[in-house]
Design a protein around this nucleic acid. Structure first.
Length: 933
RNA sequence: GGUCCGGUGGUGAAACUGGUAUACACGCAAGACUUAAAAUCUUGUGGCAGCAAUGCCGUGUGGGUUCGAGUCCCACCCGGACCACCA
């Protein structure tokens, strides 16, 4: 028979991912090995992944990438005998999902059911080790009941309030948006340029926590880039509000500045077109021009206010302010480059030391005075924009500040201004209060009732949840005029300020719920009289700000979460997610946790002690997007290669925290790797080689790989962990029965040389093993599978069971403890018991073991011996003048003298050295010796 | 404009605290097996020169520090992310 080189072992199974993956997924869930006992766990480890928005067709490989990366960490921690809690759910409320429903022409509720099914199917197919008994969806009334309850807690604390303000409005999505949801002047969801509207809305007072949010960052073990982004977003700045008297008026204009040191260089003042003083100070003959300018500005969005080339425009008010420092008259201008919601809405113009001020001065032909000399020493007049000096320097032309460096001068002038009563030190923030209301349907109704007599009242706890009514007409309505002319926020409105009656604005954004009479009509919880419900819903980001708390208490119905459990499990030990949430979800969640802490609801201020942002998975060199047509959906790959292959391949694309590039060709290679693993184990395990004495190289490689994989997983360098396993596999294969047989067939006589080469076995064993050509010890196979288990959970489980059913002395535990206890690491002893024969495929399912620690994922992570992990033999590089000239194989730890002797004796070195003697010898232990001549 | 990441073979990417550049994989080439293909296996694979031993060059560009630089410093070019007329 010519066909094959060696007999197929009996019962040999080909690697069939489709069958084994479905089998183990089912078994894992049924036996609950990934469901820790939340109340009794001994070593809790909360491994959390940002839950997805089920907003589109399904998860793409970018999502799978993130989930897999998080899951690997969880699997690893579980094998380290932590009680890992790894939950999953859906962030299914909100604009994302509603927009998708709009697109599909379905009711959001109906669409949610479809998406839910599909998302959970995909997540299961990926083989993540979730606790499926504790999933949650934010649109579930059992969940949003508590989202509403949280809103009420904030309201009672004065942290949720209504105010009329200039807010972002998206004309496409027909709702208001928080500042964080406006990206580059556009709506985060649909990309439409947002408008500014003055509307009365619900806000959360996140600004009250600005300093704590900033200061706590220092204590967090988070990806640095996310911390930087949060710092920048909070944008704390120390400066001073300086008041300038207006000539011929009792009014004064207050300007915020961080550079009061340059105040002697002030030549004008600019106030924004929204500024309330405009009417009061503009002289009659300038009034028409000012009004016209202000109206035009009000129509523009923030983005539209930045003209081409930042060309400055403006109008003069006719008034002057007095600079207290030197009595100088500063003309007051109006310009739209000054924003109403930044600082005080007015700036003092120092054109010599601020580029925008310079541009304005040039456009309006205003004087420029130099008051700082930079490091270049240039004291000349500033006439070109490149000369505008904004950096370090020394003060001139500023009387008592002259000669000081700018930092000292800033201090001195602030003290001086405060002393004189002309200014007050002021800290400003970029962070604004969180606009929480949305004029949409698919969200938790804000649980508030408005009574004409009693004002805003919270819905009593017993009446929660305020159910989202099932309505047919759920589509967004948009701006609704209340009879008066629809007009954007502008001059007249500002002038009317002081009257806080919201109806006076003449407009409102109408929510879909407002037309549901039965929903709106209610009674006041305070006086019992007729009242109206709030018809806005809350922002999606409120839903996702507390989900990690709910996961722990999904079965509890009488409170949002169980405090004991939260104390046991929180803060989250490892949180993984996208960097795009740096200033959205991650900031809101921190804020709410602080509020909960202040309310005595939780014991921590910071919800996530460790956070790592994963990188972006791109596809064929470009970001995945529908327009590029390079969005990769995982389903087909899982079907073709199995989830294990996809998982490993995704993790192999690059460093997890830096992202990677998904290419079709690479995945074939990973599938090959797993097939080789399958072959190695399935064809070698049955020899039960346990008396084999491992050679030095084999032993070293095993221990080194254990060390490497553990370290790499810890730092999320999954790509190199897999590479280390591949390298080890390459080595093991050389000693494998299969390879040996093939080599034997190809090259007779290789048998002996292969054995000699590895020198892995003693004589006694050799005689036993030689005929079979396998020199792979079973322990090596087991360790290999354990190290690979987090990456490829199914195939390693299958092979593990294969070995376990076969190898002598390995028995099932029959301790009968509950799963929860066993996973807790209370080392379940392997008492001798029944040995279960390995039954491939579906047969195994029928007789599945109902015992603890049966799974590879419940095995302890292999330990390594540091001595064995360290190399005994090293290749030492011999350099001459820094160039590699020779390599010496030496024992690790060899001394400098010895190496020098060896090096000088080397023929190759002699050739380069000639008669010369090294003037200097640099020696780095176990690395190199450099002879300098 | 500001801040922060990156730039290494044909490709995805490795390189610990400054110490063998290109691990691991893909692709490609040649070979084995096969009627053939697929699959699998073997060998090779940074560039240039050479039959070869070997030599020279080589981590975006130009400088610098150092016995030694992908790694540190300075200047610049390119790509990406976040923020942005923020006073």
């Amino acid at each position: 028979m010519k066909k094959k080189q060696f007999e197929k072992p009996k019962g040999k199974q080909e690697y069939n991912p489709t069958v084994i993956e479905a089998k183990w997924q089912k078994l894992w869930e049924e036996t609950g090995i990934f469901s820790p006992n939340l109340d009794r766990a001994a070593k809790p480890f909360y491994n959390l992944m940002m839950f997805p928005y089920p907003s589109a067709e399904g998860l793409h490989v970018g999502n799978m990438y993130a989930f897999t990366g998080s899951d690997i960490y969880g699997c690893y921690k579980r094998m380290q005998k932590y009680d890992v809690f790894e939950p999953i759910g859906l962030d299914g409320f909100g604009i994302h999902s509603e927009n998708y429903a709009l697109k599909m022409g379905r009711h959001p509720k109906e669409q949610a059911k479809i998406s839910e099914k599909n998302f959970y199917r995909q997540l299961r197919a990926n083989g993540n080790s979730y606790d499926w008994s504790r999933k949650l969806e934010t649109y579930d009334p059992d969940y949003y009941k508590w989202t509403q309850w949280i809103f009420i807690q904030l309201f009672k604390k004065g942290l949720a309030y209504r105010k009329k303000a200039l807010v972002n409005f998206c004309p496409q999505d027909k709702t208001v948006l928080a500042d964080e949801q406006v990206i580059d002047g556009k709506c985060e969801r649909c990309g439409t340029v947002v408008e500014k509207q003055e509307l009365e809305q619900w806000f959360f007072r996140i600004t009250a926590y600005a300093d704590r949010l900033l200061e706590n960052l220092e204590k967090l073990d988070w990806s640095e880039r996310v911390k930087i982004a949060q710092r920048q977003w909070i944008g704390r700045k120390e400066g001073i509000n300086i008041a300038y008297k207006i000539e011929g008026s009792n009014e004064e204009v207050v300007c915020f500045t961080t550079r009061p040191d340059t105040n002697f260089g002030a030549t004008f003042i600019v106030i924004g077109p929204e500024h309330p003083l405009i009417y009061k100070i503009t002289l009659k003959r300038y009034l028409d021009a000012v009004k016209k300018y202000a109206r035009a500005a009000a129509k523009k969005s923030d983005k539209e206010r930045i003209p081409e080339g930042r060309k400055k425009t403006g109008v003069f008010t006719g008034s002057y302010a007095i600079n207290n420092l030197n009595g100088k008259r500063l003309p007051i201008w109006i310009s739209d480059f000054v924003l109403g919601n930044v600082g005080t809405g007015a700036v003092v113009g120092v054109p010599g030391h601020d580029k925008r001020d310079f541009e304005f001065a040039q456009a309006m032909k205003l004087p420029v005075i130099r008051v700082v000399v930079g490091v270049d020493g240039d004291k000349s007049e500033i006439t070109r924009i490149e000369q505008v000096q904004e950096e370090e320097g020394t003060i001139i032309n500023s009387e008592f500040l002259d000669g000081m460096d700018i930092h000292k001068a800033t201090h001195v002038i602030m003290d001086y201004l405060e002393e004189k009563g002309w200014g007050v030190r002021q800290t400003t923030y970029h962070l604004r209060d969180w606009l929480i209301s949305r004029q949409r349907y698919w969200g938790p109704p804000i649980p508030m009732i408005h009574c004409e007599k009693c004002g805003w009242q919270a819905v009593p706890g017993k009446d929660l949840p305020v159910l989202l009514p099932d309505v047919r007409d759920w589509k967004p309505k948009g701006i609704h005029s209340t009879g008066l002319r629809l007009r954007p926020f502008g001059l007249e409105l500002m002038a009317e300020r002081g009257r806080s009656d919201s109806r006076s604005s003449g407009q409102a954004v109408e929510s879909p719920l407002a037309s549901v009479a039965s929903f709106v009509k209610t009674n006041c919880p305070n006086c019992g009289g007729g009242a109206k419900r709030e018809t806005d819903v809350s922002d999606t980001f409120l839903d996702s700000s507390w989900y990690f708390l709910r996961y722990l208490s999904t079965e509890i119905t009488d409170r949002a979460w169980d405090k004991k459990r939260s104390e046991k499990w929180l803060p989250v030990n490892m949180y993984i997610g996208g960097a795009e949430h740096s200033v959205l979800h991650l900031l809101y969640t921190r804020f709410l946790s602080m509020v909960f802490y202040d309310l005595g609801l939780v014991h921590f201020e910071e919800p996530f002690s460790k956070f790592r942002a994963h990188g972006l998975l791109i596809s064929r060199g470009a970001k995945m997007s529908k327009s590029r047509g390079n969005v990769v959906v995982p389903d087909a790959y899982i079907e073709k290669y199995g989830a294990d292959t996809l998982r490993c391949y995704l993790m192999f694309c690059g460093r997890f925290t830096q992202g990677g590039d998904f290419r079709d060709t690479g995945i074939e290679g990973m599938h090959r790797f797993l097939k080789r693993v399958w072959r190695l184990v399935s064809e070698n395990f049955k020899f039960k080689i346990s008396n084999l004495k491992l050679g030095e190289e084999a032993e070293h490689l095993m221990h080194k790989t254990i060390k490497r994989v553990a370290e790499d997983i810890e730092s999320l360098d999954y790509n190199t962990a897999i590479a280390a396993l591949m390298k080890w596999l390459n080595f093991l294969e050389e000693r494998s029965i299969a390879r040996g047989s093939e080599q034997k067939a190809n090259k007779p006589g290789l048998e002996d040389s292969a054995l000699e080469r590895h020198g892995t076995i003693d004589k006694k064993t050799k005689s036993n093993v030689k005929g079979q050509m396998s020199t792979v010890r079973t322990e090596e196979l087991e360790v290999f599978l354990k190290l690979l288990a987090p990456f490829a959970p199914h195939v390693t489980e299958e092979l593990w069971q294969m070995i376990r059913s076969s190898v002598l002395g390995r028995r099932f535990s029959d301790s009968g403890q509950s799963i929860g206890q066993s996973v807790s690491g209370a080392a379940t002893k392997n008492k001798p018991g029944l040995e279960e024969p390995y039954k491939p495929g579906l047969e195994a399912e029928k007789e599945r073991p109902k015992i603890d620690n049966w799974s590879i994922h419940s095995q302890p992570w292999p330990k390594f011996d540091p001595k064995l992990a360290a190399s005994k033999q090293v290749t030492l590089v011999v350099q001459i003048n820094g160039k590699v000239r020779d390599r010496l194989p030496v024992e690790a730890g060899v001394s400098k003298d010895e190496v020098e002797k060896l090096a000088l004796a080397s023929e190759r070195v002699q050739k380069y050295l000639g008669n010369r003697k090294p003037q200097r010898v640099v020696f780095v232990a176990d690395r190199l010796i450099n002879l300098v001549i």
